[in-house]
């Protein structure tokens, strides 16, 4: 769309800007202030300079949490993206079945995150859970409070359950926007199913998939409530991710300075990743419009 250059548009932005600035910029400034001081209360505080950043960057617990976080994020992306595409291809296109399937698939997304944790706790417990009891009946001593591998597998399964619908729905909407004429043309050319997927469906999906990957990556980086309820970060600290380490430090131990420094490092990682994705999306749209114009 050809947009008009008009700086009066700022007046339309202004109310939103004030609100978001109130809840984003003021707290961010405070975090920066915390990060260079040892704060006991508003009157008792000492300037520490970059000390907290140095400690945090060299803190083995946090480094481990960061590594775990990346491992977790990439694992779930590797599972959810193909699975989501597959489900989107399977979903009925019209009729009451389409609505019913849509509603059922959306359900996990609408459950409060700690309830998701509770559901999976109830589902996987060795004494009362369907899955827990089921796996034990099969002869495997499944125990998420003792065995880190079980805990990991369960958390990944839970996340797949919780968030694959998002990818599936994104892809479904991408597929729905392909005109029928494309499929007809493919039929006339006797294109194989794979060719239809590769040359008609996948290109249409890339746009939504980038959004999906971006959202999933960001949300998996913030994951807190689900593992907190399900495993409490355990056994040991095998399922403690970044958000939980941070929350424990900030709320549990009241270490304002270190946790603020850690928050900023965390935020910088997020900022870099989201900038890369955003630039990718924008360049893709630019390419699309260029092709459309040509």
């Amino acid at each position: 769309m050809n947009k008009v250059y008009n700086n009066k548009a700022w007046f339309l932005i202004l109310p939103m800007l004030l609100l978001v600035a109130f809840s984003a910029i003021i707290p961010l400034m405070t975090v920066v202030n915390y990060s260079v001081q040892d704060v006991f209360d508003a009157n008792t505080r000492f300037f520490t300079g970059t000390e907290w950043f140095e400690t945090m960057l060299n803190n083995p617990t946090l480094q481990a949490a960061l590594l775990r976080q990346f491992a977790f994020s990439f694992t779930i992306l590797a599972i959810q993206i193909p699975l989501g595409i597959g489900i989107a291809l399977l979903m009925p296109k019209r009729g009451w079945q389409a609505s019913a399937v849509l509603i059922l698939i959306t359900l996990p997304l609408l459950i409060p995150w700690n309830v998701v944790g509770s559901i999976w706790q109830l589902f996987t417990r060795g004494d009362i859970g369907l899955m827990g009891v089921g796996i034990r009946e099969l002869g495997y001593a499944y125990n998420i409070t003792r065995n880190p591998a079980d805990a990991w597998a369960t958390i990944i399964l839970m996340d797949v359950w919780h968030w694959t619908p998002l990818i599936a729905l994104l892809c479904y909407s991408g597929l729905r926007s392909i005109p029928d004429a494309y499929y007809q043309a493919a039929r006339i050319d006797r294109a194989s199913k794979w060719a239809v997927f590769r040359y008609i469906q996948l290109p249409k999906l890339t746009n939504v998939l980038v959004i999906g990957i971006l959202l999933r990556f960001m949300h998996s980086f913030m994951i807190y409530a689900e593992p907190f309820v399900l495993t409490g970060g355990g056994p040991g600290s095998s399922t403690t991710f970044l958000s939980q380490s941070l929350t424990t430090m900030a709320i549990g131990q009241q270490d304002l300075g270190p946790s603020a420094a850690f928050s900023l490092i965390y935020f910088l990682i997020i900022l870099l990743v989201s900038w890369v994705f955003y630039t990718a999306i924008m360049n893709m749209q630019k390419d699309n419009t260029n092709q459309g114009g040509a």
Binding site: I26, M29, V32, N33, Y34, V36, Q37, R45, F47
Partner: peptide, 15 residues
Amino acid sequence: MSWMVWTVPTAIFFS
């Protein structure tokens, strides 16, 4: 404002 615990360096940074 006191809860924001401003310091001179951070004030310079944001300015």
